[in-house]
Amino acid sequence: MADQKDANGRKTGVLEDLKEKSREFGEIVKTKTQEQLEELKKPQETQLYRSIFRIKHDEDPRNRALSTLNNLFFHIHPAKVNRDATRYGYTWGLGGITFYLFIVLVFTGVMLMFYYHPTKVQAFRDILYLENDVPFGRLLRNMHRWAAHLMVMAVWLHMFRVFMSGSYKRPREFNWCVGVLLMVLTLLLSFTGYLLPDDQLGFWAVTVGTNMARATPLLGHQGPFGPQLGMTPYNDVRFALLGGSIVDANALLRAYIWHCIAIPLIASVFMGVHFWRVRKDGGISGPSPVMLEAETKA
């Protein structure tokens, strides 16, 4: 670059040129930053936000509705609900609470699975390990245990509420049946988890529980007509449950598979059906306007 002279006759060299350009560049960065910081004040307007939430969040009814409908997690709800259905006193949110507890249980359960081996050698030791070594391990195990209890309680109370508000009636008969099955699955989930620490408490609870299976009519070796059908301790329904004639390593493994894989899968499918049917059967049942005797078809 040849030397130039500016208006004042001073030599303008490379250095001066560079200085000038970087000043200009600084200006641009400054303005852009200011602009973008301004934009950040409305995060809903950002591309990132939109890519995740798909819709602009303007305060208008359409967007409100879309925010529910366009969200995988929220769209189990309708866009709008009966105004009185938002009152806590009608449902107490018990179904939702049950579902939330299920999520908590899946989360804590998966964490626990990282540390647990369903073998006679390791199972009990792993619990000790969880209690004493794993960071937050004790909390994790406690939360899993108590969430399981809470879920059983929530399921029962949910059923109680549904019955008391007559919500099983047409067109929700089928969903009630699904609900009953889900309740049974909840109990089975909790029960199969009982054995997993492989301690005396679980061992004897499961022994007591599965001993009943011996007495299954036709299929148990101590049940009515069982022996007549050739049932022995080695081929009856209890053997199938435990993978053996006593509660032992196989029972532990089976309980583990039922608890961690089979029942959660089955329950998830039923839950899907349950939620879908809630929507399809007209949302939650109420609170509906009361009907009068006179209005029934005789």
């Binding site: 619990i127 406690n142 809470l150 301690d199 061992f203």
Partner: peptide, 30 residues
């Protein structure tokens, strides 16, 4: 749940032993 889990520990008894019967041997509460 957190308060419950922080104040009460989940039970853990002796390792399972088929030769030592629990008395009473009870099923889970439900």
């Amino acid at each position: 749940l957190m308060v419950w889990a922080l104040t009460l520990n989940a039970p853990l008894e002796e390792p399972a032993n088929a030769s030592v019967t629990m008395n009473p041997a009870k099923a889970p509460w439900y």
